[in-house]
Each structure stands twice: as C-alpha cells, then as structure tokens.
C-alpha cells in the first residue's frame, strides 16, 4: 500500500541512537513514511509506523517494554517486531526492520513488513 521507491532491502540511515533516549521512541521520516523508532533498554532498536491505526495516535510517544508499544491515546498495544495489535484485536501497524551499527548509526529498512 505504501508508496515506497526504495529497494526491498535497502536501509535508510535515520540518525544516531544516542538521539533516542533509552526506553523511549522518536518519530522519523523514512522514504516518505513516518516511522517511530524505539531504543530498547537492552540497546537494540525497533521500528513501527508512527501513527496508530486506531485513531491516529503518535506511537513514538507511547510507553514501551521489550515487546510492545502502548499508544498514548487509547492503549492500543502493538508488537514491536510484527506490528500486531495485542490488546483489542485492532488492525496491525506496519513494522520495519531496524538495526544499530557499531558507531551508533540507526538504519531502518524502508520496506514495511
């Protein structure tokens, strides 16, 4: 559905992991899509669509743990790896591949899974 012109496996550099506080998320534009990138307490990163499919809430503002992000508006809860909604049987959010390089650079694949 999304209008992506970036190749399937190409990763887009979005910035450094130190710009995302531990345990929080920040929103970025990745190849024309808005993506919420989260910095987990174990140092890894996750990325899902920035907009809650339920009512458009800002997922980057949500509380997270190792597995899920909770939308701040109505508590819809999304698996950070698959994007599946786990609390209300809601629609899934787009999930993206994300990784941190040794120098802290965060890359997100433009292809939503």
């Amino acid at each position: 559905m999304s209008d992506l012109r970036v190749g399937r496996c190409e990763r887009v550099e979005i910035g450094n992991v130190r710009d995302i506080p531990v345990g929080e998320g920040r929103a970025y534009a990745v190849a024309g899509e808005q993506v919420a990138v989260f910095h987990l307490r174990d140092g890894s990163v996750r990325a899902v669509g920035a907009i809650c499919p339920h009512r458009g809430g800002p997922l980057a503002d949500g509380l997270i743990d190792d597995a899920v992000v909770v939308c701040p508006l109505h508590g819809y809860t999304y698996d950070l790896i698959t994007g599946t909604e786990t609390a209300n049987d809601g629609a899934a959010v787009c999930a993206y591949d994300a990784q941190v390089d040794a120098d802290g650079t965060v890359r997100v694949s433009a292809r939503g899974r």
Binding site: R18, D19, G25, R26, A29, A50
Partner: peptide
Amino acid sequence: VTPGQFRTSLPLTVLP
C-alpha cells in the same frame, strides 16, 4: 531532560 524531549512525534501528517 532527554534528547528530543519536545520533538514532534508526528512530523509529516496532519492528524484528524
């Protein structure tokens, strides 16, 4: 207190 504490979480889209 944190980097980007007040950065917008919705940079592009006009929300409902």
